[in-house]
């Protein structure tokens, strides 16, 4: 299967969710990097220029939104897909303010994540 351009960076504190995503996305031909939390991601000084972030909203320490704000302050402009237990209007509003393109609800419905990732990566052509 042809490799799609761009790396998917997954930030999730749940090990099973992390590696299952890696499996499912790699089967789809995507390259994947895993981070077990905001600290690990922020410590990575070699983030790809082309790719997208899949971030869990509720994590210990910084939450997903705070992580994205911190990244934006560092001029990291990668598109972000935020995955929340519950995505109410309020959260979507705040997420949009932080320049988050996609907010998905758990449990992920069939295909929703894949679609979001593909359209996030499509912006790189």
């Amino acid at each position: 299967m042809a490799r799609t351009a761009g790396t998917v960076l997954i930030v999730d504190d749940d090990a099973a969710v992390r590696s299952s995503l890696k499996f499912a996305l790699e089967v789809e031909g995507l390259s994947v990097r895993l981070y077990d939390g905001p600290t690990a991601l922020l410590a990575d000084r070699d983030l790809p220029l082309c790719g997208c972030l899949v971030v869990d909203y509720r994590m210990p320490g910084l939450d997903g939104l705070q992580l994205v704000d911190t990244l934006r302050a560092r001029n990291v402009t990668l598109p972000v897909i935020l995955i929340a237990g519950r995505a109410n209007k309020q959260l979507r509003r705040v997420a949009a303010k932080s320049g988050i393109s996609y907010v998905l609800e758990k449990p992920l419905s069939d295909g929703a994540l894949m679609e979001s990732i593909r359209s996030a990566l499509a912006s790189y052509g």
Binding site: A16, V17, S20, L21, F23, K106, P107
Partner: peptide, 8 residues
């Protein structure tokens, strides 16, 4: 969490 992993 486990359901998401299973589905993936």
């Amino acid at each position: 969490q486990p359901l998401t992993a299973i589905a993936n």
